[in-house]
């Protein structure tokens, strides 16, 4: 069983000319967990992952696997499997031959080619030219490449892009299974909703810089909860709340009151003699906190 190592980004920085793509980014990814690497398009996810994999040279800082840079790994494909955004295939080569080339480069047994193609569900298309593959099949082939060396660490850039619903369901189970085996799984996405069912931890970046780090549940507590209260007589309820100095807005399901305390709202209604038909606490959605963190002005 391959054992995952930690991934360590340390004060990494990358500028492309005048553009700062990644700005002083530091975080650690632990084995045995699925870590979502999130941020809107252009936040610097791909650039960060490419620096980690030795494809892009950092302007400063380091990114390592348990302290070892990618290019210094003795058997890189056996330690780390990576599937990066963008199709990286010669369209005239069959999937089996595509993988065969890199199996040879890494000195892996040729039997791995069939094994990984079966694993990602492309066994029946092994001899087909990649030029005729759909986007979803290309994503799977990219994943097959990542799995060639049965690596302890998986680094996947937007692996869910272009997958059909069945593929999305499959990859969610796949990510969980990989982490359960003790592997380190780092998966990027520009949509929290795409990965929120699969990730344990989140690392959120915006404009190249870290904005949030922690378990998925930490996103829930970050935004202030609201109280939703409704009454057959909304006028009277509103008047009572206003009198107590509470601000609220009128929503579809009732009045959204800016306080974390449901008992306070209940007491005010009771004291004013207003009947209430519902009263509950609403956590801000994960997506809401995510959007608040990455800031407005980004297309998601």
């Amino acid at each position: 069983m391959p054992i995952g190592t930690t991934i360590e980004f340390s004060h990494i920085h990358k500028s492309f000319g005048a553009t700062t793509a990644v700005n002083d980014l530091s975080f650690t990814v632990e084995p045995g967990r699925v870590t979502g690497f999130l941020g809107p398009n252009g936040a610097g996810k791909t650039t960060s992952l490419r620096m980690l994999l030795g494809l892009v040279a950092p302007t400063s800082g380091t990114a390592t696997f348990g302290g070892i840079r990618y290019r210094d790994l003795p058997q890189p494909l056996h330690t780390v499997g990576a599937a990066l955004e963008a199709a990286s295939f010669h369209p005239g080569r069959s999937a089996a031959n595509h993988l065969g080339v890199y199996t040879r480069a890494a000195g892996l047994p040729r039997t791995r080619v069939t094994a990984v193609l079966e694993q990602v569900g492309l066994g029946a298309h092994a001899e087909q030219r990649v030029g005729g593959y759909s986007l979803g099949m290309r994503q799977r082939l990219g994943l097959a490449y990542a799995l060639l060396g049965d690596p302890g660490v998986l680094v996947l850039d937007e692996p869910i892009n272009g997958l059909d619903p069945e593929g999305i369901k499959w990859i969610r189970g796949f990510l969980r299974a990989m982490a359960a085996e003790g592997r380190t799984v780092l998966v990027s996405s520009h949509l929290l909703s795409e990965v929120q069912q699969s990730v344990d931890d989140v690392v959120i970046i915006a404009r190249g810089a870290l904005v949030h780090l922690g378990p998925l549940s930490s996103l829930e507590t970050d935004a202030a909860p609201q109280i939703v209260v409704d009454s057959p007589d909304r006028e009277a309820l509103g008047a009572a709340l206003r009198q107590a100095g509470l601000t609220f807005s009128v929503g579809r399901t009732g009045l959204l009151v800016a306080t974390p305390d449901p008992a306070l709202v209940g007491h005010l209604a009771f004291a004013a003699g207003v009947e209430i038909s519902s009263l509950h606490r609403q956590k801000a959605g994960l997506e809401d906190s995510f959007l608040a963190l990455v800031g407005e002005g980004h297309t998601l």
Binding site: L55, A86, H90
Partner: peptide, 18 residues
């Protein structure tokens, strides 16, 4: 030039970082 055109430098340099 095919390596640049088809972006196969990525899998190539991942398998052989030197």
């Amino acid at each position: 030039t095919g390596e640049f055109r088809h972006q196969t430098l990525t899998p190539t340099f991942l398998a052989s970082p030197r």
